[in-house]
Write a protein that binds this DNA or RNA. Structure first.
Length: 304
DNA sequence: AAGAAATGCCGCCATC
DNA sequence: GGGATGGCGGCATTTC
């Protein structure tokens, strides 16, 4: 029997809590049809129900829409997770749940992911965790994290696959009509620049880049316009935004290109031109590097 | 597809 | 002295 604990912490997304329970029930059906002996037993646990229970095979900490709990989680829950991990349980999280796992220290110096919209906040709090926000799922065997509000689907499937057989996961994916192939969170990601850093000059630089992204802007010109030395602008910019001006501009341009791919029928060639590139192939290369798929694949996926 | 020219990045160090 | 600034040289990246 495979014991799964789904933590129903305050404000946790209820569709995920119940959806996961039902997913494991369905997985039991698939196991049966494939003549496998494995069976899942799911427990939904609130923070008050933790102490007396036996060791689990996997713990799931799901998404939340409300930061109140996951930014300052119950120490008893953290302790309990740590003990379960020591006893061999797989610790897993989806979306904001990764904040709770991070607070236990289990992710230190490991790869992890969470919702892309929470990336800046996460990096601020947990500098020693290697956040790979472009991925939907990061599986380190004993700890699994997932990004995206609906990534509990991916997480559930991954756990089913890891605890039973990949064939069970694929069959379950078919029943649910959910993609079990490779997918990345960055396909869905939008550039969310840091603006609340409190450096007014850098903010002006950011606005100027945003406004002038269609033209080629040199760092020298930007520095001059702001009455700053180039070296200083660079340092202040990186400190405030976590990106070099060039990287920042590239993200702005790719973001604009994504918008245009979605909202217009224009060729990528003309889009490239409108986001400041005189060289389509260079623009395409950049797009693939940041988004993880080609412009045409992007358009196909989102405007189909 | 590849390479040359331009531009950006960054360590070092002196300066304010 | 700590902290921010900025000039310079050269390595790296970007662009066409």
């Amino acid at each position: 029997m495979l014991n799964i604990a789904i933590i129903d912490y305050p404000n946790s997304l209820q569709s995920a809590v119940y959806g996961l329970q039902e997913m494991f029930e369905m997985a039991n059906g698939v196991c049966q049809s494939q003549q496998l002996v494995e069976r899942f037993k799911c427990d939904k646990l609130t923070c008050q129900q933790l102490s007396t229970l036996p060791a689990f095979d996997a713990i799931i900490i799901g998404p939340s829409n409300n930061s109140e709990f996951y930014l300052s989680p119950d120490p008893n829950l953290l302790e309990w997770i740590t003990v379960q991990h020591q006893q061999g349980a797989i610790i897993s999280s989806a979306c904001a749940g990764t904040f709770i796992v991070a607070a236990t220290g289990l992710l230190t110096h490991k790869q992890a992911t969470t919702h892309w919209g929470l990336a800046n906040e996460f990096k601020l709090r947990y500098r020693q965790i290697d956040l790979t926000i472009e991925k939907i799922l990061v599986n380190s065997i004993d700890v699994i994290t997932a990004g995206g509000m609906m990534s509990w689907l991916d997480l559930g499937l991954e756990l089913v696959g890891q605890l039973t057989q990949p064939s069970v996961m694929r069959q379950l994916g078919k029943q649910l009509v959910v993609d079990t192939g490779l997918r990345e969170q960055r396909y869905y990601q939008q550039f969310s620049p840091i603006l609340n850093h409190g450096d007014g000059i850098v903010l002006k630089a950011q606005h100027r880049l945003q406004h002038d992204l269609a033209q080629s802007i040199s760092m020298a010109a930007l520095a001059a316009a702001l009455h700053l030395g180039e070296r200083t602008l660079l340092r202040r910019f990186v400190k405030a935004t976590q990106l070099t001006p060039m990287q920042y501009l590239q993200h702005l341009r790719v973001q604009r290109a994504c918008d245009l791919l979605e909202t217009t029928q224009d060729s990528f060639e003309s889009i490239a031109y409108r986001v400041g590139y005189h060289d389509v192939s260079g623009c395409r290369k950049l797009f693939v590097r940041i988004m993880g798929l080609t412009p045409s694949a992007f358009r196909q996926r989102f405007v189909g």
